[in-house]
Design a protein around this nucleic acid. Sequence first.
DNA 1: GTGGTCTAGACCACA
DNA 2: GTGGTCTAGACCACC
Lengths: 147, 147, 147, 147
Amino acid sequence: MPRDLPPLSIDPCSGEPIWRQIVEQLKVQIASRELTPGERLPSIRNLGSTLKVNPRTVVRAYEELGHLGLVVTRQGQGVFVLNGEAREPASQHARRAVLEDLTRRMLAEGTRMGADADEMLAIFEETCQAMQLPLSKSETTPRNASC
Amino acid sequence: MPRDLPPLSIDPCSGEPIWRQIVEQLKVQIASRELTPGERLPSIRNLGSTLKVNPRTVVRAYEELGHLGLVVTRQGQGVFVLNGEAREPASQHARRAVLEDLTRRMLAEGTRMGADADEMLAIFEETCQAMQLPLSKSETTPRNASC
Amino acid sequence: MPRDLPPLSIDPCSGEPIWRQIVEQLKVQIASRELTPGERLPSIRNLGSTLKVNPRTVVRAYEELGHLGLVVTRQGQGVFVLNGEAREPASQHARRAVLEDLTRRMLAEGTRMGADADEMLAIFEETCQAMQLPLSKSETTPRNASC
Amino acid sequence: MPRDLPPLSIDPCSGEPIWRQIVEQLKVQIASRELTPGERLPSIRNLGSTLKVNPRTVVRAYEELGHLGLVVTRQGQGVFVLNGEAREPASQHARRAVLEDLTRRMLAEGTRMGADADEMLAIFEETCQAMQLPLSKSETTPRNASC
DNA sequence: GTGGTCTAGACCACA
DNA sequence: GTGGTCTAGACCACC
């Protein structure tokens, strides 16, 4: 008996393709362990009717997740989340390029909307916590007040 | 005599539309003050031939920057960077929603590629510095002043 | 089965760009509820061939309506009229500035053509009625109820 | 000795051509008698330097006003406002078509920005008053309070 | 010189 | 079927 999976929110009016919206949200859920390795994703028909989108669109999203190495399709059984540790990580150099680019875009968008770097850092740290990605230098732990 | 403007790198094979690639890079350059308020962007024809893309594609990008409130076009003169301070910022609520989403995506992508939260925080801070967005960094300043 | 949509009249010889003519007429139709919220606009290709203009020109018009917050496009499905009530109104101050300017221009043009204020007021009131924008008209209701 | 003429405000960033902005504002000033028949407009060089625009642009605007029959150029002497009564008015039918169109656009734009018909009527009446275009049914005059 | 408009047509992505 | 992107080129308007 499959547990209730975390919901997805789709905006058909957004410029972003629906299949990509699904991919992005599932990527986040997998990274934050809301979807755990070995777990089965909702069936294509099921998710399609839940989100009120064409099943073909769901197929497109699951294919993309497969290409990214996050899920695997077992014929006739369904689509399953893969174990992250099993995948070999990208080179640090490649990671850095991608992450710098994403960070630059986030900072640019935040700046455009009037946020400063501190505000964005706070959001960054909170989001790490919310996604259960621990930061080693826990700057929110109490420091000896008596010092 | 116009100064040399920072270069743009376009990948026509990437799935991302060329005009959007231009927008993203110019957004970053404006946020980081590589392009300063009042400065003129390269002319449409000029940038088109530099990037080897159709001038119409550049027009599309400049229009989008105009809708984002980052540039204005003065007829017959060119397209100019607007002063960010003049724009009224988005509500903190709206900012937060957008920035949380972008951050979640970045963290998810980083996790997928094998980075941990500390590595991403380091990249975040370096990128802030590189884009000249100062952090007050109170959490790294010594706390033992009273010690 | 889509109903017959109200016709548009385009004058390619007018100095006004065709896409802007389309925008203006659709704005009026949306304001007067000739096009109701949720309704689909004619498809780009369809309207293009109807008006004998290039589909790109129609795209330009629909994009502008999107930026004005009057329509949204759903990928692969079409362009749909948005619910006006859902949009938050502009500040009264901003409204006033724009409307005063438009009114001044209308009065100036009418004066130039030999109309007086009463004639223009009559046209104003009739047009309100034709567009189904009800006036409370307290100033024309009989005031002698207590007499 | 020419009196100080009412100022013009030009926005080079607005999409509207500068020469048309000049035309529109002068049309309003002539209709409201801020510029009286027989009066001389500022010289082309003068207005060009005042508004910081190319003198050619001013020429374009004055030409248009000439075509509209609002001013006349006397070689070597300047550009003069014509007497409105001297022009024969357009047919009522033509007037009506133009004014209805302008009114529809104003109502559509106001509706988009969240104004209702009463608000727009109030602005209409105030603007008539500000432009010295008297309305015969003076709905703002006091009615017998004792009734 | 600058940007803006319109056309014609190919190709792709989305649902 | 829908809309989105890119190209190529002509022509105009603006300053």
